[in-house]
């Protein structure tokens, strides 16, 4: 019962803040609504027993990444954008219509997947609890089965840092 209530709460918050992100003119408002979306997502992750991911969702997304966005917004002296609806040209209208069709198709696809997944893995909630909790199990997975991708990720991050430094420095 509590789960249902929480789900609808977080889901509603996420949808509303996502809509705000798209419709508000001020970039700072947009950024803040995106943070709200991320936090709601973190709540949903907890409902789904993904505690580790929920934590880094807050830390990395809502924290680090969004702070970066806000920094950049403040760094750039942005002119105000026109109202979302006032510049609703034909192309935009067409785009929204297409997006709605896409959503309808996604719904149709979702409705057709019921009962298609018969094989289930070993990581049931009980097993995970027994093995020491979600974070511990994911940590072990990352350093065993997914060791190579995990290490490669570090290279990716270094490259990103170097790239950012290179792009950001003044030419002289």
């Amino acid at each position: 019962m509590l789960e249902t209530v929480l789900f609808y709460f977080f889901a509603g918050a996420a949808i509303i803040s996502a809509l705000m992100l798209v419709m508000r003119k001020n970039p700072v408002t947009c950024a803040v609504s995106l943070i709200i979306t991320f936090i709601s997502f973190a709540g949903l992750y907890i409902l789904l027993n993904a505690h580790f991911i929920a934590a880094i969702q807050i830390l990395v997304y809502a924290g680090a990444i969004m702070v970066l966005f806000l920094f950049v917004i403040m760094l750039l002296d942005l002119k105000r954008e026109e109202d979302f609806l006032s510049r609703l040209k034909a192309q935009k209208f067409f785009g929204i219509a297409l997006a709605v069709i896409l959503l309808a198709e996604v719904f149709a696809a979702i409705s057709s997947i019921n009962g298609m997944f018969l094989t289930r893995g070993i990581y049931s909630a009980e097993n995970i609890a027994e093995a020491g909790g979600n974070t511990k199990v994911i940590g072990r997975l990352l350093f065993t089965d997914y060791l190579l991708p995990f290490e490669v990720t570090s290279i990716l991050l270094i490259v990103a840092i170097i790239g950012a430094v290179f792009l950001g420095k003044k030419e002289n």
Binding site: Q91, F94, G95, L98, A99, L102, E105, V106, A109, S112
Partner: peptide, 19 residues
């Protein structure tokens, strides 16, 4: 943005085909 529109058209068509 028109590129994005093309991508969405593509996604709609492909998804529609599989449905």
């Amino acid at each position: 943005q028109s590129y994005m529109l093309s991508i969405v058209i593509g996604a709609v068509v492909i998804l529609g085909y599989y449905l």
